[in-house]
Design a protein around this nucleic acid. Structure first.
Lengths: 356, 356
DNA sequence: TTGTACGCGTTATCAC
DNA sequence: GTGATAACGCGTACAA
């Protein structure tokens, strides 16, 4: 077992100084062809590669991005990670992943852990508990430390940073209007509690779409599901939706704010002897595996998770580059830094078998 | 914006030496109560946290684990990551993720990138292209560099390291025997090409189970699907399976080596007017979202991805600890190091609606 | 009780 | 053309 070779070892071996080796390897013209050749050959032979940690310490930048998300076992989030990793890698960055598991405390611990030099910037989506508490001091603290943040999907006005969001509102409007277009008269909404911003926005879109078409949004047709902080109670979910269907037999269209609700609704409908899409048409938000492979396959509002990740990564890396440039110049007024970008990723309806 | 404070700044501010600060903060008894108090108060006020990078450089260990997987948008892999992150975090490690995207080259690039000091050890699952090429030099190279590897799921005998695998063979045996028990007479196998080790093992299990019950495995009932290196050709998959069903109308049981094949088989069967589970019973391997929410929900062989991740992380961190211990002692003979562990995670059949 | 010096691996500046 | 030195931030053995 030969440990990684260092400049010092090469220098000793070849009987030159460390700085000569460093220069030779970086192809500096200061060094003679002879020694350069010799050193480069030796380095290649022993597969020399500069130590990232040492470089990070010296350059005061790690070339790695910290991703902080509530949950990784979610199609949407893993799609986003893929997008981030893709452009990060292309632009010479690595990606370090922390999971908050929807917990406020774990979110903070993870942030602090990574903020102590391990990463140059964050890309994150806020945990449910944090949204509930509305306590965002840790985000502002790390930004004040000079570590830029890009938020995606679950974002919040209280933090000044770049953001990448899905057009939740318009996505919902499109979905509901699609159902209206397909002659649905009584459209139900399956949504989450309001503290999850995306849930709230999608609910607003639902209402707006109806009102645009002079339909009064009937509160009875809105089911706010409290999936709380733990997600594992499928039977409850099914039961709740079943009750909801029974109380509202008029329902001929369903818009669900995520694919799980949508698929469960289809299951329940079938159980109640309703055929899809003939008796009830269904559209879900978020395009994942479930939608694609359900029977019937589900018409959805696609979120383009990968694109979100790519945008977020580009935004962050651009900003990191800009900071570097700033430091080179005379330090400019802090005001200058407050022009943050909010990128909105358009949604798209993918029609499948659950609508006519 | 106040950048993170360092020992040096505290020292200058309080007019003491750097080492005094360092000692005071670590609670050394060498320093007087007075100064300790003063320094700790100041440090807390400015929220001092030691710089991870500097520590990494000094200690020659980063306290981070590199995860290298073919694809993150896969329920199984994200489950494994969750398991790894869980114990890594608990044991004071961070997790950095690289995606090979099933490519040999990307796998190597990622490895080299991370192996230059960024991580203490790897947990990885081999890319399809690498398995196809059977070129494992990069794994052995990094192991020789003193960076331990733990492989999971897609492992290979040619590399000496700890491994965590699913009991693919027995899982398949159990599944097929379950189908036999449920009176299936003509059980088909939907599998991958043999170069994916898990596909091969599962195929072997299928054959063994049949032979255990004195049934000759009919090659016609085995469909080897070449999903190659790109996974996006659903229509082809559906068509291929449909053909297969038409050629073999006797099929009354299906064992599929992954849930996508299983769900697609159900879809095709229904299209051909066959009812599930009455006409055809189906069992899939890999327990993911799809299985749980399909209609009918799918009976599966559960892989316990999270447990795999946890085991792998424990194995790696244990070994990292052991190495440290070794270095402290007189360097022991290299032979000593070759007792690698192979952990087998038992599978479990989860019965749902696709079997009677 | 406190401070000095050194090393982790690298690059950049400056001196020879 | 080459080498010594400082610096990035930290901990610690040793000196005062």
């Amino acid at each position: 077992m030969k440990r990684k070779i260092t400049l010092k070892q090469i220098a000793r071996e070849l009987d030159v100084s460390i700085s000569t080796v460093s220069k030779a390897l970086s192809g500096s013209k200061e060094i003679s062809e002879d020694t350069t050749q010799k050193i480069q050959a030796f380095a290649k032979l022993y597969n020399y590669k500069p130590n990232n940690i040492a470089l990070s310490l010296k350059n005061r930048k790690t070339k790695t991005i910290g991703i902080l998300i509530p949950e990784i076992v979610h199609h949407f989030f893993s799609t986003v990670i893929r997008g981030i990793e893709l452009v990060a890698n292309r632009r010479g960055y690595n990606v370090i992943v922390g999971l908050s598991n929807e917990s406020f405390t774990k979110e903070i611990i993870n942030m602090e852990m990574l903020a102590n030099g391990s990463i140059d910037g964050f890309i994150l989506s806020i945990s449910k508990e944090t949204l509930l508490k509305q306590d965002y001091h840790h985000f502002n603290a790390t930004i004040n430390q000079g570590i830029p943040i890009v938020m995606f999907d679950r974002v919040v006005n209280e933090v000044d940073c770049d953001k990448v969001i899905v057009d939740d509102f318009n996505g919902s409007v499109k979905a509901v209007e699609k159902l209206l277009e397909k002659q649905c008269k009584s459209i139900a909404l399956l949504t989450t509690m309001d503290y999850v911003s995306v849930g709230r926005l999608r609910t607003q879109g639902y209402i707006a779409a109806l009102e645009n078409n002079d339909i009064h949004a009937d509160p009875d047709l809105i089911l706010k599901i409290n999936d709380g902080l733990d997600e594992n109670h499928l039977e409850d979910l099914e039961l709740e939706i079943e009750q909801f269907f029974k109380i509202n037999p008029s329902i001929d269209g369903v818009f669900a704010v995520n694919e799980l609700y949508a698929v469960t609704a289809m299951k329940v409908a079938r159980k109640l002897g309703l055929s899809i899409p003939d008796d009830v048409q269904v559209i879900g938000f978020t395009d994942g595996v479930l939608s694609k492979h359900a029977t019937p396959s589900l018409t959805t509002v696609s979120q383009h998770g990968q694109k979100i990740g790519e945008q977020a990564a580009n935004l962050l890396i651009d900003r990191l580059g800009a900071e570097e440039a700033e430091e080179a110049e005379y330090t400019m007024s802090n005001e200058r830094r407050s022009d943050f970008i909010k990128v909105v990723i358009e949604t798209e309806i993918i029609e499948r078998e659950s609508t006519k």
